[in-house]
Simulated scan of single mutants.
Amino acid sequence: MDFNYSDEQQQLAESLRKFLGAQYGFDQRKAIVHSASGASDSVWATFAEMGLTAIALPEEDGGFGGGAVDLMAAMEACGEALVVEPLLDNVGLAGRLVARTGSAAQRAALLPGLADGTRRLAFAYLEPGRRYAADPQATTAKRDGDGWVLNGAKTVVIGAPLAHTLIVSAATPEGASLFIVDPAATGVAASPCRTVDGQRAADLRFEGVRLGADALLGTAGGAQAAIDEALDFATALLCAEAVGAMRYAVDATLEYTKTRKQFGVAIASFQVLQHRMVEMHIHTEQARSMAILAASRVDGTDASPAAVRERQRAVSAAKVKIADAARLVSQEAVQLHGGMGMTEEMKVSHTFRRLTMLAQRFGDADHHLARFARVS
């Protein structure tokens, strides 16, 4: 397997890093996090201009027909900068589901806007009290004439306060289904919140929400495979983002130990700290290798049961490694910074929070260990 990025992928990542370095510094990020919306429209527009919102979309829908491997380097750059704009949720989840399950009319209505940055989506699938379960049960949709009536609740929907359109999973008599929902529709109630790492999310309630026949994505009861595939795709992108955050933590900690002095010498000269820094570096590189493997597997086009199991095994193995590495690297980074590592003024403390969230999202280590064993 080739662990090197292509020239195009490296150029995109470097362009993104240059932009983020100039326009998304730590103080600028803090201002965005504490703004009314919790995201920057100008940053999102720049992401669209760079093609980040279109890379993984089909060419016929205004995208470039790329995959997770094409986005990996860019997601690493986003991880380094702790970007709070919901790129992963738009491109890796909601957009992918529309591209994979939507009719020509539905794709034409939603995806060109996603590609050019004028429309933002959010995928609502987690339900209260069900942890990481991806099959809808508490949210239901029943037929009502030619349309549907949606009831239920979703929790921690990342990007929902910013979304123009929601993609909602619901249980129908036929099985798991997906629906396009207007967040401003009658019967939709949102309770916005800010996650511990600065992203905007919301808990959603649906009470008698009436949907037209054209709100159904794909066929009734046929959505679960598409949901599972999109979650694996998004998990691979999340692993790349975590690698970027870990790399920043390693670099920032190394720089700090070179300048912090104790007993008249830089603490980087202490052998025991050198060993800890080496361990942080090794875990980050191992995590990167697993992230590349996961990205290559989710980009496969084979939908046979054997290929699906192989994809699930690779993604779960990568997520287990990412979760373990994120915990070790983030904790070591804070400890080696001393008390300063816990302060709001240090970016490393915010990196700790982001890595903690990334380790839990889409399933923690225990969840993915169980899935790895189940599909092996």
Rank of each mutant, 00 (worst) to 15 (best):
F3N: 10
N4V: 01
N4F: 11
Y5Q: 06
S6A: 11
S6R: 03
E8Y: 00
Q9Y: 04
Q9S: 11
S15C: 02
L20A: 04
A22W: 04
Q23D: 11
R29G: 07
K30L: 15
H34N: 14
A36N: 04
A36W: 00
A36C: 00
D41P: 01
L52D: 11
I55G: 02
G62T: 02
A68Q: 07
A68N: 06
E80M: 10
L93D: 07
G95F: 03
R100Y: 00
A105Q: 12
Q106M: 07
A108Y: 03
L114P: 01
R120W: 08
Y132H: 11
A134E: 12
I158F: 05
A160R: 05
L166A: 02
G175L: 08
S177Y: 10
S177Q: 05
G187W: 09
P192F: 14
R194M: 15
V196A: 14
G198L: 06
A201H: 03
A201R: 02
A202M: 06
D203Y: 08
D203C: 06
R205E: 13
L211G: 10
A225P: 01
I227W: 08
D228N: 15
D228G: 01
A230G: 12
D232N: 14
L237Q: 05
C239V: 09
A245T: 13
M246N: 12
M246W: 12
R247A: 14
L254S: 14
Q262M: 14
V265W: 08
A268D: 15
R276G: 05
A291Q: 07
A295W: 10
D302C: 10
R309N: 13
V315L: 09
K319Y: 08
K321C: 14
A325Q: 04
A326I: 06
Q331I: 00
E332T: 09
A333P: 09
Q335T: 08
L336H: 05
G339W: 12
M346Y: 13
V348E: 09
S349V: 00
T351A: 15
R354Q: 15
L355M: 14
M357V: 09
F362P: 00
D366M: 03
H367L: 01
